[in-house]
Amino acid sequence: MSTPGFHQRIRFSINGRIVEREVPVRQTLADFIRDALGLTATRLGCEHGVCGACTVIVDGASVRACLMLAVQADGAEVRTVEGLAQDDELSPLQKAFLDHHALQCGFCTSGFLMTATDLAAHGAGSNETEIREALSGNLCRCTGYANLVDAIAAVLKEQAAKRE
């Protein structure tokens, strides 16, 4: 498919794999990940930066892939949901989501997992108010959030216990 306009060559790492591609400069990171790389776990819910479904981790920080251009990822390290489970073994967060019934339709789930991954990586506490605040940039229309909060709190608590 040919999109007119400028193209630029980018090279970056996605889930530990180095990717080098020619990308249209106007293409978002989300479209690039989904359409060019076929990694469809990153979902598009609003494409204007509010719903958080497309959240990915770029250089250690959670980012809305719909608000970032693919060319801006040049040289970066990107993680998506496809990079969470190792050898089909669910990550602690994925396992906690399953145990706590933290998803229904599952469309927003990838975004919540990546936001929570960022939260866990930064050593956040399991205080409910703080977790809710941290999740306020992700919309879920099914669950009413309580089970999402519980799942994430359980992982953060376990992580804190391990650190001590």
Partner: peptide
């Protein structure tokens, strides 16, 4: 527990 979840959690 839900049998739907593994495919949704892994983005499949």
């Amino acid at each position: 527990r839900r049998v739907e979840d593994p495919r949704l959690l892994t983005g499949r």
